[in-house]
Measured scan of single mutants.
Amino acid sequence: MKVIFLQDVKGKGKKGEIKNVPDGYARNFLFKKGLAVEATPANLKELE
């Protein structure tokens, strides 16, 4: 799953980066803790 990092995550990505991460990791950790959002067209547009 492609995500946009909202904060630096040690060993995974830095704020503003767009990266592919495993689905479970994204849903169960990154999204729940507010560290990233899914890289949807709407979210990508907001990032610009």
Rank of each mutant, 00 (worst) to 15 (best):
K32Q: 10
V3Y: 00
V3H: 00
L44V: 11
L44D: 04
I4A: 03
G11N: 09
F5R: 00
G34F: 10
K33M: 15
E46K: 14
D23R: 14
G16V: 00
N28K: 12
N20M: 15
N20A: 11
D8F: 09
A26L: 08
N20L: 15
M1Y: 07
F31N: 01
T40Y: 06
D23M: 15
A36H: 00
G11M: 05
L35S: 02
L47H: 10
F31S: 02
E46V: 14
G11Y: 09
K10F: 14
K33D: 07
V37W: 07
M1L: 14
G11I: 02
L30A: 00
G16W: 11
F31P: 00
L6A: 03
A42H: 13
K15Q: 09
P41A: 14
V3L: 03
K14E: 06
L44T: 07
K32L: 13
K14A: 09
K45G: 09
A39G: 04
K14W: 09
I4S: 01
N43I: 12
E46T: 12
G34V: 04
F29E: 08
E46S: 12
F29L: 07
R27F: 10
K10R: 13
G34Y: 09
P41G: 08
G16I: 00
M1I: 15
N28F: 13
Q7M: 13
V3F: 00
V37G: 02
L44H: 06
I18N: 02
E46L: 15
G11D: 08
G34L: 08
V9W: 04
P41R: 09
D23Q: 14
V3W: 02
K15D: 01
F5A: 00
A26M: 06
M1Q: 06
G13M: 03
K14T: 09
F5D: 00
K19R: 12
K10W: 14
V9H: 02
Q7P: 00
F31M: 07
E17N: 05
M1A: 05
I4R: 05
P22Q: 08
L30T: 00
L44N: 05
G24P: 10
G16A: 03
F5K: 00
E38H: 07
V37A: 08
A42N: 10
I18W: 03
V3E: 00
I4Y: 10
F31G: 01
L30M: 03
G16T: 02
K45W: 11
K12Q: 15
K33W: 15
G16L: 05
D8E: 08
K33Q: 13
A36M: 01
A42I: 10
K10L: 13
F31W: 03
K14G: 05
T40R: 05
M1H: 04
E38P: 13
F29W: 11
Y25T: 04
D8M: 05
T40M: 05
G16R: 03
A26N: 03
E46H: 11
E17Y: 03
K12H: 15
R27G: 02
D23Y: 15
R27H: 09
D8S: 09
K45Q: 12
L30I: 01
G13T: 03
V37Q: 07
K15S: 07
E46A: 15
V37F: 04
L30V: 00
V21K: 01
E46W: 15
P41E: 14
L30R: 01
G11W: 09
V21E: 03
Q7N: 08
K33S: 10
E17I: 03
V9S: 02
E38S: 07
K10Q: 12
K32V: 13
N43L: 12
L35D: 01
F31T: 03
L6M: 08
F29T: 07
V9Y: 04
F29K: 06
T40L: 06
R27Y: 10
K32R: 12
K33F: 15
I4W: 04
D23A: 15
K19I: 10
K2D: 10
G13Y: 14
Y25F: 11
L6D: 01
